[in-house]
Amino acid sequence: MTDVLGRRGNLPAETSTFMGRAEDLAEVGRLLREESLVTLTGVAGVGKTRLALKVAGERSDGAWLADLSAERNGALLAHTIGAAIGLKEQAARPQEDVLAEHLSGRRMLLILDTCEHLIGPCRALVGQILRAAPDVRVLATSREPLGLPGERVHTVRPLPVTEEDCDAVRLFRERARAVRPGFECSDAVVRLCGRLDGVPLALELAARRLRALTAGELLDRIDDRFSLLAGGGRTARHRTLRTAVGWSHELCTPEERLLWARLSVFGGTFGAEAAADVCSDEQLVNVPDLLARLVDKSVVIRHGQRFRMLDMMRDYGREWLHVLGEERLLARRHREHSLALRRGMRHPRRRDVGDPARRPESSRPHPGPGH
């Protein structure tokens, strides 16, 4: 597909080196050959957009990017996508119909970047596009799947942190040399990358702090990661690590936010039964379902039959647990659960029916503590 200017796409030029992800690139490329809709999901700042653009750049049939991050009105979604691909408005007809008709019979890749806040409208419009234009491929980035039949979901994981030559450390070194030429890695850098979960956004923000701090000093201050890693992200939502994670928080329901905060008492992996035993009460009566929803929204990561949160997600939840005034309560529940397990009890904790209900404002949507 070409627009009125004869362009076969509108992808931005690469301004920095793409690191690793060889398996992801191969797998997403394979999925796009087999299916019309592929959605890249993953935690905040993990690099979904960058991976999508890299995949698109290797295609020969034209690729068009529609950035949906600034659009808040689902009714204008087709207008936003149409503007991105150079489609003129037609006031006499619904823009959804105009867009679907325009794409009919064309062969191209359409990237819909940042869909999570418009899941319903994206689901409806993508379905209409794919029915009208079977040769169009849609590559969506979102913190949760669109939920369409035939959708293939690829979860983008953090970069591995294993040694000095791993992808996470190489990314940090590359970005560090942009602010400190000749920068060399050390054991402190490897440990710092581990504490940052191997999340590219966090690594890039940390590398920028090397203008004023050493890697060791960054590592010493990492417990206050949200204050430490502020400034300079790709979009307004990603100028700090806090706002990137806070965006996920805003997209959760009040019950999901409350469970997120309570799950922060788990320092490592945990099972669904443990989550239910420690976190359930009259406010959260169906923890397994809520836990599954947090997995879908890339807040919690599933590892086989167990679950865990990245440190940045856990730290954010812990801040909210403090705001809610539940730190001592959840610490006691977690301690009792652990002690009971050591004694061999199958159901360690009875539900705390008498626990005081939390104040209503604890469930209101907020960008996050410290905003």
Rank of each mutant, 00 (worst) to 15 (best):
S60T: 15
D61M: 01
G62D: 05
A63W: 00
W64Q: 09
A66S: 13
A66H: 02
D67R: 14
L68Q: 10
R72D: 14
R72L: 14
G74D: 08
L76Q: 15
L76D: 13
L76S: 13
L77A: 07
A78Q: 02
H79Q: 15
T80S: 14
T80A: 15
A83N: 12
A83E: 15
I85P: 03
G86F: 11
L87F: 05
L87S: 04
K88I: 03
Q90S: 13
A91Y: 09
R93D: 09
P94T: 10
D97E: 15
D97L: 12
A100Q: 04
H102I: 00
H102W: 12
G105H: 08
L110R: 02
I111A: 03
T114E: 15
C115Y: 03
H117Y: 03
I119Y: 01
G120R: 10
G120L: 14
G120T: 15
P121C: 09
C122L: 03
A124M: 09
V126P: 03
Q128D: 10
L130Q: 10
A132H: 08
A133T: 09
P134E: 07
V136M: 04
V138H: 02
T141L: 07
T141Q: 06
S142D: 06
S142E: 07
R143V: 05
R143S: 13
P145L: 12
G147V: 11
G147A: 11
G150S: 07
E151C: 12
E151W: 01
V153F: 08
V153S: 04
H154N: 04
T155M: 10
V156N: 07
R157K: 13
P158W: 10
L159R: 06
V161A: 09
T162P: 00
E164L: 13
E164R: 14
E164N: 03
D165H: 12
C166Q: 02
D167V: 09
D167N: 03
V169F: 08
R170T: 12
L171V: 05
R175A: 13
R175V: 11
A176H: 02
R177N: 11
A178N: 05
G182E: 07
F183K: 00
E184A: 15
E184C: 12
S186Y: 01
S186Q: 02
S186D: 14
R191Q: 14
L192Q: 05
C193T: 04
G194F: 09
R195P: 01
R195A: 15
L196A: 11
L196C: 09
L196S: 11
L201I: 05
L201V: 06
